[in-house]
Write a protein that binds this DNA or RNA. Structure first.
Lengths: 294, 294
DNA sequence: AGACGTTACGGTCACCGTAATCATA
DNA sequence: TATGATTACGGTGACCGTAACGTCT
C-alpha cells in the first residue's frame, strides 16, 4: 500500500523547493519532460493535485504542502537507514555529536570530558554544522546526538537532557553609548535606529523581515557587529567568541536559553546511553554546585 | 545520497521477517531469484552484509537488525505520506482516533463528548485495532491520534496528554477461592498452579514464555477466564467488559496504569489541537473532581 | 534426493532524452 | 516572440520470470 518510491519523493521535493520544473530538473540531473511526467504520475497515483501550474509559474496546493513535509521526513528516514546501517557495520563504534559552529565551547568540552570518564566510552566525532542544521543531521542519521537550544529549536521529535541554562546578552560595538551600561532591557536594544537587530534564518531557511543585515554564521555576525552595523541578542555562553571590538551587556528581562542534549527517541545504542548518562551527571553536578553557592 | 528505494526496503523487511527467501518471495508476489538479486544489490550498495546465509537457513547480521528497524520506520513514513496527503485533499476534514478494541469505553465516550463541545469540532472516526497496533497506525498516518497505556506502550516517539490513571485488578473465574477477597497482592495471584497468567503479545508480536494460554484479543481472554483456565492482571477500567462468570479483585501493590492520548509530535492540524484541548479539559476536570471529594 | 539459495538467460516494461507542441505574457 | 510546461517518440537499461546450477543435510 506504499506506492511511493524515494526517487519520486526526491523529484517532488525538488520541484516543490524550486517551484520551477527547469531548475528542479537541472538540480536532479535529468531533463524536464521526465520530471514533468513523474510528478503527473505521482498526482495520478495519489489522486491528488499537488501543484498548481497556472500563468506565472508553479505553486503548491494545500495537499502539496502536506506531502512536502511528509516526503522530507521519509527521505530523511531513508538516508538515516543508510547511515545507521553502515555505522553498525563499521568495526569500531563511535558517536557523532552535532553542534552549531562556534557555540557552547566550554560546555562541549565539559561534556566530552565527562563522557570520556565513562567506563565504556567510545570515540566521539564532533560535527560542526550551520545554524539550525543539527536537527536534520539527527533525523537523517548523520549524527547520533546534538546540542540544541530551547526555546529556539523545536524539541518535540527528540528525547532531550538539559545541560545548562543561561541568560541572554546584547552584543554591541565596543564604542556604542549603551555599551557602558551594566545591564539592559529588551526594550532598550530593540528598535535602535542606528543599530538594527541582525537576522538569522528560521527553520525553513528563510529570513524574518526587518532592517538588520542577514547572516548565516557566527563570523559574519561578529564582523557586522564590530563594524557597528548591527547588534544581536544572544545566548550568554556566546561570550567565548567575542572580539575586543565587542561589548556584551546582560539583559534583565529576556527569557533564558537552555542548551540541551538531543537524540532520536528510538535510539538503543549503549554508547549513546553513556553520553546521556554523562550529560545527566554534568547537569546534576551543576545543580548541586549552584545550590551550594547560595 | 539516499540510494534506497522503498521497494528494496520492502523486499528486505519481508525477507528479514520470514528468514526464508521462498516464503518472502511468495508474500511479495514475485519469484525467488529477483528477490535474491535485490538483496544482493542492496548489500553491495550499502557495502554491508545484511543476512548470513549458511546451512540451515538465513539469519540477520547486526547491521541487518539495524536496517530492519530503520527500513520499517522509512516505510511507515512513506505510507504516512500517502495517507496524510490524501487526507489533506479530502474536502471534509476529520480525525481518526485509534484505540484497542474493548478498552476504555467510558473514557472514550467522555473524550468524544468533550471534543464535540469544541467550537470547530470535526467528525471523529474511531478505529478499533488489535493489541499494540495503535502505535503503528500513528506512525504510518492511518490514525491522527490514539489511546495508549503507560507503562505498557513506549511513548518516546509521540506527544502525549494524560487522560486517566487507574489501578489494576485481577480477573478471576467467579467461583475461585480468591474471588471472595476484597483485595489481593501481586504475590497472591502470580504463580497459582491452577490459574496460570494469560499471555499477550509484546510489541514485536511474540509471546513471553510461561504456562498460561496465549491470547490476542479481549474476547478470547474473557472466555478463557470464564472457563477457569486462566487469570489476568489488567487495567481496572476493563471492568466494563466483564461477564457474570468473572470476578474482579483490586490489587493493592500493582503499579497504576495511565491512559494517554498520543499523537505524532509534528502534527499541526487545528482539529487535532482541539482534541488535545478537550483531553486536557477532561483531565483537568477529573483532577478538580478528585480534589473536591477528598 | 530434497530443500534452498544463486547464477544464467531472454523478454518486457519503465524511465530517460531529444524533439515537437501548446499556452501564456 | 520568448519562456516554460506538456505530449510524442524512439532507445536503453532495470527488473522480472523460467530454467539450470551449486551446496548442504
Amino acid at each position: 500500500m506504499d506506492l511511493l518510491e524515494t526517487r519520486e519523493l526526491r523529484y517532488f521535493v525538488t520541484v516543490a523547493e524550486e517551484l520551477h520544473f527547469g531548475r528542479a530538473a537541472e538540480r536532479l540531473g535529468i531533463a524536464q519532460p521526465p520530471l514533468s511526467r513523474a510528478i503527473q504520475r505521482l498526482e495520478r497515483r495519489l489522486g491528488v493535485r499537488l501543484l498548481e501550474r497556472d500563468r506565472r509559474g508553479v505553486a503548491l496546493t494545500d495537499p502539496g504542502r502536506v506531502l512536502l513535509v511528509e516526503a522530507r521526513t521519509t527521505l530523511d528516514a531513508a538516508t538515516a537507514a543508510v547511515h545507521r546501517t553502515r555505522r553498525a557495520a563499521s568495526s569500531r563504534e563511535r558517536l557523532v555529536l552535532a553542534t552549531k559552529a562556534g557555540a557552547d565551547h566550554e560546555l562541549l568540552r565539559e561534556l566530552l570530558d565527562a563522557y570520556a570518564a565513562e567506563p565504556d566510552a567510545v570515540e566521539v566525532e564532533v560535527v560542526l554544522c550551520g545554524i539550525g542544521e543539527q536537527r536534520r543531521l539527527l533525523r537523517d542519521g548523520r549524527a547520533d546526538a546534538a546540542l540544541l537550544h530551547r526555546p529556539f529549536d523545536p524539541l518535540a521529535e527528540f528525547d532531550t537532557e538539559d545541560l545548562l541554562t543561561v541568560g541572554r546578552i546584547a552584543v554591541l560595538p565596543a564604542g556604542h553609548p549603551l555599551a557602558t551600561r551594566p545591564s539592559l532591557s529588551m526594550a532598550e536594544v530593540t528598535g535602535l535606529p542606528d543599530l538594527p537587530a541582525a537576522r538569522w534564518p528560521d527553520h525553513d531557511g528563510n529570513y524574518p523581515p526587518g532592517p538588520g543585515p542577514e547572516f548565516r554564521d557566527q563570523s559574519q555576525l561578529a564582523q557586522m557587529i564590530a563594524l557597528g552595523r548591527a547588534t544581536v541578542v544572544i545566548c550568554a555562553s556566546a561570550h567565548t567568541w567575542l572580539w575586543d571590538e565587542h561589548t556584551a551587556v546582560p539583559l534583565t528581562d529576556a527569557p533564558p536559553i537552555t542548551t540541551v542534549l538531543a537524540w532520536p527517541p528510538h535510539s538503543r545504542s549503549p554508547a549513546l546511553a553513556g553520553l546521556v548518562r554523562a550529560a545527566g551527571r554534568l547537569e546534576g553536578h551543576r545543580r548541586v554546585g549552584r545550590a551550594a553557592t547560595r
